[in-house]
Nucleic acid binder design. Structure first.
Lengths: 198, 198
DNA sequence: GCATGAGGCGAGCGTTTACTCGCCTACAAT
DNA sequence: ATTGTAGGCGAGTAAACGCTCGCCTCATGC
């Protein structure tokens, strides 16, 4: 941020710019994300945009941070709510909530995974993965897995695998795999992997 | 291709251009992939580049096609060789070969997954996934899974999950997960998922 | 009600970069 | 040897786009 908006109208403008940034990203894609278009969509001049954002990357970063915070919040809430349950029902509930967290803003998810260079979102993605890996590790400890390294390894594997499946299912909507089936199979994958004896 | 090279020296130049394209992509990243740099790295003028490639995307496409063909070839060969074996040893062998296929050109893998918009490689990636899904489906049929839809679903799940784990392991080299452990855990994930009773 | 500075504007500058075009060279066939 | 053609060159062009700068307006404190 180049300077912090003091008056209410400038705060509102910054808000409009971020919202417009999201809209431009969805409507025109990553290549079509230009500062002139963002300013235009916000009903603001390019010069005003640069009063508060040092460069183009800065406003894109804010847009991406907003979105990934939202997704992370939904995912964390879903896990916190459901990690207490037991048996296969818990796996279903988690998978379902995970899909819901991604489906809630599928338009951004699509642009972000298909058009955006992954490096732009790597930081946020790693952070979320780490959070979820910690939760999964704790869950494994509850299951009686005593080796801490093994817990980390298995948590890493199951979290990355489930993440990928959820994202790809939401984006690709494979004809052969209904939503309910996807939930069941994702839960099954995680369940069999984590529960199987060594 | 704008026109096809007839003489030997022009064919050699096209070769040099494609090789230079790969090098520029690795050395300067996706953003640094400019036609001038590619021509320069190939010891050729920009004008000559445009004799044989209609635009920048065309030469990038060739570079990407080359690489993905190589990866696909290694993966397909690895699976064809090992799908006959039985028991957990087969899972290990496949996982190991898959990692090897990605490790063979990790520099391009890194640029392609971290900097390149995924859409540029979606076609090739889908094609490879489909090939492997077919193989996995056949393997499931051999295991006695009679429902063709279920075979498709499970093949989709296991292939995407394993793909993601292999790519991420090669790129991230997580400290807690040695190569041997990664092979074992990937095999375990696939094995428990596919072998578990319904 | 006036002075001050924050807020906002938008034409345009400068750079980057994909791509071209007129010209030269090397080769092969007659 | 000559001539036609493919191959190759590289300075230059055009367009896009990030970003600035000089100017105007409005809100707030005294």
């Amino acid at each position: 941020m180049r300077k912090t908006p003091r008056q209410a109208r400038s705060r509102a403008m910054v808000e409009r710019l971020v919202a417009a940034g999201r809209d431009v990203l969805v409507a025109h894609g990553y290549d079509g994300f230009t500062t002139n278009k963002v300013a235009d969509a916000a009903g603001v001049s390019p010069g005003s945009l640069y009063q508060y954002f040092p460069d183009k990357a800065a406003i894109l970063d804010v847009v991406l941070d907003r979105w990934s915070d939202e997704v992370a919040e939904r995912v964390a809430a879903a896990l916190a709510d459901r990690i207490g349950a037991t048996g296969p029902a818990m796996g279903h509930a988690v998978a379902d909530a995970l899909l819901a967290a991604l489906e809630a803003d599928a338009a951004v998810l699509r642009v972000v995974t298909e058009e955006l260079p992954a490096a732009h979102l790597a930081r946020q993605r790693r952070a979320l993965e780490q959070r979820v890996i910690q939760l999964a590790g704790a869950y494994l400890a509850g299951l009686g897995v005593d080796d801490a390294t093994l817990r980390q390894q298995r948590a890493w594997v199951v979290v990355l695998a489930v993440e990928q499946l959820a994202v790809r299912w939401v984006l690709d909507q494979p004809a052969a795999l209904s939503r309910a089936d996807a939930v069941a199979e994702i839960a099954r994958l995680a369940g069999t992997y984590l529960a199987a004896p060594d």
